[in-house]
């Protein structure tokens, strides 16, 4: 049987604690991926969950995961050398050709940074592929900041706003919700800027409204959706919105399509 649900073993290579509830897991993997695609990660007998691919380099596959339930609890108890199971990759991901030679803005909230991390890395390390890059990342509080080293690295290379909803005495960067910072970007020739928005549903909603208010064009806005997914291959029905299957046609959508997707 050519079984698309058959999970394949992946060995956990290392982990990096990001916050109290988020950890980055690095697995041995030589598959080809596109940033923004996802895998169905499973622990036999425990469950299966869709998890975004946040990075890959030909030898490893990296995922940043929040501990919220059955599968993720069990995963967080695992040590390097242990095996998890995955199938995929699924979904379209952020296709590099959509962004070639564009004035890019990437806006990511919380764990939404994970699916877009590889794409930002590619922009930062191959600046000639795009015209320009600006970044806004936002977290709930200083304790929720992900990828601290990577953020520092990006910050040295490109204009970047790092904000938290609520700061504390030692927080060195910006404070306030993401949408309130968009106007602080360099918005010259805004109608020709291309923007990627990834984050929790409310953040995406208010961010895109603010982008449109500031003159960004709908066609130039890209968003990534999260929906309940049991299969990843267009069978289980959970991710369906109108005639669109988020697992097949998404999770990345152009805003012209995304705005019509009402659950």
């Amino acid at each position: 049987m050519n079984n698309p649900y058959m999970p394949i073993p992946y060995i956990l290579k290392s982990t990096q604690i990001e916050t109290e509830i988020d950890t980055t897991f690095v697995f041995e993997a030589n598959d080809r991926f596109i940033g923004g695609q996802f895998m169905q990660l499973s622990i036999p007998g425990v469950g299966e969950a869709p998890i975004s691919i946040s990075d890959f380099d030909g030898d490893t596959l990296t995922m940043t995961i929040r501990k919220v339930g059955r599968v993720t609890d069990r995963l967080f108890a695992m040590k390097p050398g242990e095996t998890v199971y995955m199938r995929g990759p699924y979904g379209n991901g952020f296709k590099q050709e959509w962004f070639k030679d564009k004035d890019m803005v990437v806006i990511a909230g919380g764990t939404g940074l994970a699916p877009v991390k590889n794409t930002i890395d590619a922009f930062v390390s191959h600046p000639d592929d795009i015209k320009s890059l600006q970044i806004i990342v936002g977290f709930k509080s200083p304790r929720d900041v992900l990828f601290e080293q990577t953020l520092n690295h990006w910050q040295k290379k490109v204009p970047m706003i790092i904000t938290v909803d609520q700061g504390d005495d030692t927080w060195p960067y910006d404070v306030g919700l993401i949408p309130s910072h968009i106007k602080h970007l360099d918005l010259t020739d805004v109608a020709n800027k291309t923007v990627i928005v990834v984050g929790p549903p409310m953040m995406m909603k208010f961010t895109t409204l603010e982008l449109l208010r500031l003159g960004f064009i709908e066609e130039n806005i890209w968003v990534s959706f999260e929906r309940k997914m049991s299969c990843g291959i267009g069978k289980c029905g959970h991710c369906k919105i109108d005639e669109t299957y988020v697992c097949l046609e998404g999770p990345v959508f152009n805003y012209t399509k995304a705005k019509t997707l009402i659950d």
């Binding site: 036999p44 007998g45 069978k235 289980c236």
Partner: peptide, 20 residues
């Protein structure tokens, strides 16, 4: 109607027997 949900169960306490 064709929708389904995945469900894993552990059949033995030591986690060695289970099913999806």
């Amino acid at each position: 109607c064709s929708c389904f949900t995945m469900q894993d169960v552990e059949v033995s306490d030591d986690g060695l027997l289970g099913e999806r």
